[in-house]
Write a protein that binds this DNA or RNA. Sequence first.
RNA 1: GGGCGAAUAGCUCAGCUGGUCCAGAGCGCCUGCCUUACACGCAGGAAGUCGGGGGUUCGAAUCCCUCUUCGCCCACCA
Length: 902
Amino acid sequence: MKDDRMSAEATTRTRELAPQYDAAAIEGPIYREWLARGVFTPDGRSTAQPFVIVIPPPNVTAVLHMGHGLNNSVQDVLIRFERMRGRDALWVPGTDHAGIATQNVVEKLLAREGKTRFDLGREEFIRRAEAFVAETGTTILEQLKAIGCSCDWSRTAYTLSPALSRAVREVFVRLFEEGLIYRGHRVIHWCPRCHTSLSDEEAEHHETDGHLYHIRYPLTDGSGYVTVATTRPETLLGDVAVAVNPGDEAKRPLVGRTVRLPLAEVEIPVIADEAVELGFGSGFLKITPAHDANDFEVARRHGLPMPVVMNAEARMADESLDGRAGGRVPEGLFGMDRFEAREVILAMLRERGLLAKVEPYRLAIRRCYRCDTVVEPRLSDQWFVRMGSFAERALAAYRSGEVRFIPERRGDEFEQWLLNIRDWNISRQLWWGHRIPVWYCDSCLTHAAYREDPSACGKCGGPLRQDEDVLDTWFSSWLWPFSTLGWPDDTPDLRRYYPTDVLVTAPEILFFWVARMIFAGQHFMGRVPFHTVYLHGTVRDTQHRKMSKSLGNGIDPLDVVRLYGADALRFTVISSLAVGTDIILDPNDLATSFASGRNFANKLWNIGRLVIGEAEARGHRGTDSPAAGLKLEDRWILSKLDRVIRDTTRHLERFRLNDASGAPYHFLWDDFADWYLECIKPRLRGEEEGGDVALAVAVHCFSETLKLLHPVMPFITEALYTRLPGNEGRTLTTGPWPEPAGREDPAAEQEFAFFQAVVSATRETRASFGVKPSQLVRISVQADGSRFDQLSRQQRQIMWLARVSELSSEVRGAGVTVPLPDGATLHVELGEATDVAKHCERLRAEHQRLSKQLQSLRAKLENPGFVSKAPEQVVAAERAKAVDWEAKLAHLESLMRGLGCG
RNA sequence: GGGCGAAUAGCUCAGCUGGUCCAGAGCGCCUGCCUUACACGCAGGAAGUCGGGGGUUCGAAUCCCUCUUCGCCCACCA
């Protein structure tokens, strides 16, 4: 219907461009075009400085969520910006085999068939997992394409690929040879559900309500008992001593005596050790070396045995590793789950009168980061990486500024972690992953790490067997910045693109991954892998809960893409991404959550319809700015354009992404669309000279702004840019990035501001007196001669923008007069029926506000402290302001007197 | 337990080195408008003692202290 009213020439084109932006129809073809042109793949011949980002590889089993959406949008903004600036931009994509996560998924699938991995056996299980990955492993990468990610897909990497596996193996062998990898016998975090040990980082702390149980251990000589306090009574069966602090005078006499361990009925000594905190609990600490890392250290100091009383499933068992302390677990408890056993044990103790007291207690337990099961500290043999030297070098790099964090405070967390680092448990009792390249010889009882699978023992020629375990997933991820570029070979990619530039990720994996990449980069490449770590916030729901599958409060980015387009999604998250803050979205109201992006995309589209339609109608081609024949509004918008180019560039360079998207947004909407395009309509219609110049300026500004927005909204900007006449077949992806062209024009901005004030004051007056838009009014402006002359050159614009039939310099009919800046006034003819009382009310309010402000300003200027201590410029500016306000106030007063307002 | 951050309009948040951004944006709300790019829009408007208290300063949302409330990271006191 609307189209019917359009002029003939505009109609031809705007019929093609629908009034509502249809992202779904636009995005797919554009992405395919980019791929076809190969714009994301560096050609290898560029002489430009490289700019490189490696993707935080999503798990192969992962499905895109808003966290990925945010993370990858940020990376894409940065890489597109630098690509447009002419850097040799490379974004390396890929996936992580995700040991535990993937194994869990495949095991779940097997469970549906009623099978366990043990039913299949190792080889068959791995075959199944590989088949699963082959089938679904590229899903998430395809999804990244839907949100516009400009990765170089020809370099897609995978942590378990042959190439990257070779890097992993090389690293293991080197560290092994350097003595930085060792076999350790100690208490580690064990996940009874995943059946594997975990690193410290993988066992997450969670505060929980629990109990502190006070249990009596009878003295062997029958002279009484000692009371220990524990949160985990089920581990009592593994106790080998009771310890007191050596400085505890009251309890010291007991040291050297023995107590009978309840239920297990073995005799254990009372010892003295510093590990016991004075004043905590009962002062007696039970020592359970196999199920508590502290107790392990105590036992080692005292040469005590270390019986294990829980098996891999955390069921009560007796697996004494040293064979000295068998038969501790009573028959009835054997095979029982640890938490069930806890209750049974408590009941037994109670029955025997050995449970002295139970009090509520808040404790931090650790849970498996993959399955949330409470981890069991458990004595075992694992492979560890010695972290000391790594941490030292990383700390030096951080302190020297070789690597920096955004936001800065994350650097403090990094430093703290480095200072308290402990060795890294890298072996996992899983099947899915890089198998540890260590072979044991049972003949000569030696073991060694091999780069190639060995056939016989290097020392004695005897048969070998390989270590059963696989490596921690992060043991491959930490090599990502160079393993993806071909290391350990000396490849052209590696020479050209290492080190990378920026790493963009969520703060959660700062230690898991970022810190360790720095370690590996320094150790194997001699340089930190990136100079900047940009840590963005977390996506949360309106209750500020992290979006997660289990809470069901997630948003599927593809839903958003389908509904509003990838650009709307990207703009929404980027524009609310202030440094260091989280993003809050409402999963139950996508329309509201993504309104700003959707609305802006639509606005862009419609600006495009206007500009493109006019350009076509006039046969205008090209995007250059005209040099001659500029009117005030042209000079003004070009001045603003220069500023927005400068600001956007600076914001992007400083990672202020919300500002980087906000600057062109406000320029385009508030300045360009609301003022400039409206201003030039009389010229475009031929009511005034200069239509072609105006259009050329409009096309130029629009085209430049599309470039500024391209990193954030790649699809719609590309779509509109290539539709500008003369741009067919071009692409924004490779730039050039706009540069300021010396067009800042303070005089034009000042003059235009006066013009805006006239228009606004007229509109305001009309609105407050209820004048219908269809009714034109006559206005007059009282200002000094040159000012009025300037203004009258904008006569057509004022008539159009403020619905005015005539602009003059003298008051001719009844109406109201309102103040303008710089002592000028505006008179709007409203006829005899003007509601004077209402107008007085407005003026009075204005008068009151202004006089209050002036009062405090005068006080300030009369303050000797201010005048003497404030910078001269500030004082002068305040003085000028006072003069201006006084004039305005006097003016208001005369207006009020004239109306008889009183 | 240690370290850190945040509290600004109904909601979600900007406000970079203390004074022309002592008050901003988006959404929501109120009043007019389908003005031949856009109702996912246009014009106009209401709305906040910048968490409480104290201090530094000529001057603080902006710096310091303290209290309150949230949040994050780290943690071998059972």
